[in-house]
Design a protein around this nucleic acid. Structure first.
Length: 120
DNA sequence: ATCGTGACGAACG
DNA sequence: CCGTTCGCCACGA
């Protein structure tokens, strides 16, 4: 069933992020845009920040980075390094400034039929 | 109902 | 290529 009106924004974010394949990345703003809220990038970051260790196992949170191609986990160095390590394990290359090439790794987005929730 | 809070981002200088 | 400013928005206290 398509996402019902009960689905919270957070849940919608997780639903999309789960579709990002290994070896690809998406930006916070990109996820927000896919959900139809092009200006809710901050809320997307907040949603991923709210992930519990439990749900982090099924949501590939590490594949969401900022528009500059960098990792955004402010203040949490441990978390940031973990994210970088996970991405590198998936084949993502970082340049000397800890940035990845969005041109090379950006996920194109989910098929339209999924965006409209016609199937899942 | 209000209000503070960010794992954001575009626009400037 | 910085750092700053300002707008945005879902959430929870």
């Amino acid at each position: 069933m398509p996402h019902n009106s009960q689905e919270s924004f957070y849940q919608a974010v997780y639903r999309i992020v789960k579709q990002i394949p290994a070896g690809k990345v998406a930006t916070y703003g990109q996820i927000a845009a896919i959900l139809g809220h092009p200006r809710a990038a901050r809320a997307v970051g907040y949603a991923l920040h709210a992930l519990t260790d439990e749900s982090a196992r099924i949501v590939p949170w590490q594949r969401v980075i900022n528009a500059q191609g960098g990792i955004s986990s402010k203040g949490d160095i441990f978390r940031a390094e973990a994210q970088r390590a996970l991405l590198q394990r998936e084949g993502i290359q970082f340049d000397r400034d800890d940035h990845v090439s969005l041109d090379a790794y950006r996920w194109e987005g989910p098929p339209l039929r999924l965006q409209f929730g016609l199937e899942e």
